[in-house]
Amino acid sequence: MARLNAIPGVPVLIACLAILLIWDLLSRVVMVSGLPPPWGALQEVPVILTDKESLVNILASLRRMSIGFSLAVAFAVPVGLLMGRSRLVAAFFNPLFMIIYPVPKAALMPIIMLWLGVGEMSKILVIFLGVSLPVIYHSYQGSKAVEEKMLWSAAAMGLGPMARLLRVVFPAALPEIMVGCRTGVVLALITMVTSEMIARQTGIGNIFFNALDMAQYDTVYAMIIVIGILGFLCDWGFEAVRRMLLGWAAPVHDIAVGSA
């Protein structure tokens, strides 16, 4: 068991099988109403992934997600780094972010749609809002923790303030930034799914509610599996990238969960 667990991927596979097994037991032995056995849903997964319309829907959603995520990172990292190095900048933004923190970002969808219409802009903006805060927070923490003496040495070597921020603070804070990005990418997916479930116009949310309306329950569950796999892949892919870039840093255990 222990040796099997050491092979990468095996524990995850076992975990997936265990989840499916529990699902199966719940549906057939406990007979939870509204819960079909997993096999029908599993068979539906390739159907969704080969159906042209749903594939277009999913890809469009992923595209919005990556644009929103990239924009958020591009905005959040510099803001976070500056906050960590300047007390004034931190004092300026902190109360604002504290107020924004408990606002359900995906819930802004109806208002944003009122302003920007139902197009891509609204959806990307909501994802941007959902991702920004955790990335700012982690960049801020990372940059705040950079050792002062490291900056003194850099200054002594003749680096100006901009160069110090770019060449000392940024790499030193990178492990923490990556933690923020990992949380952020999962949050991007969550916000994307949530806002589309609220808007019900296109994308993943559309597939969901079409299936619900037509009582195609296997499709509903298959969609959950697809989104679940997406979530796991986002997280796992980011962790892989992080390990590749930051072999030197100690592994960071973070609570990579959040909500839109």
Binding site: P11, V12, I14, A15, C16, A18, I19, G34, L35, V186, L189, I190, V193, T194, M197, F208, F209, L212, V220, Y221, M223, I224, I227, G228, G231, F232, C234, D235, W236, A256, V257, S259, A260
Partner: peptide, 18 residues
Amino acid sequence: QPVIRVLAPVPKIALYPA
């Protein structure tokens, strides 16, 4: 641990229809 690694990053909101 593996169960959590699989389930934690899953957007739980997707479970809501189910």
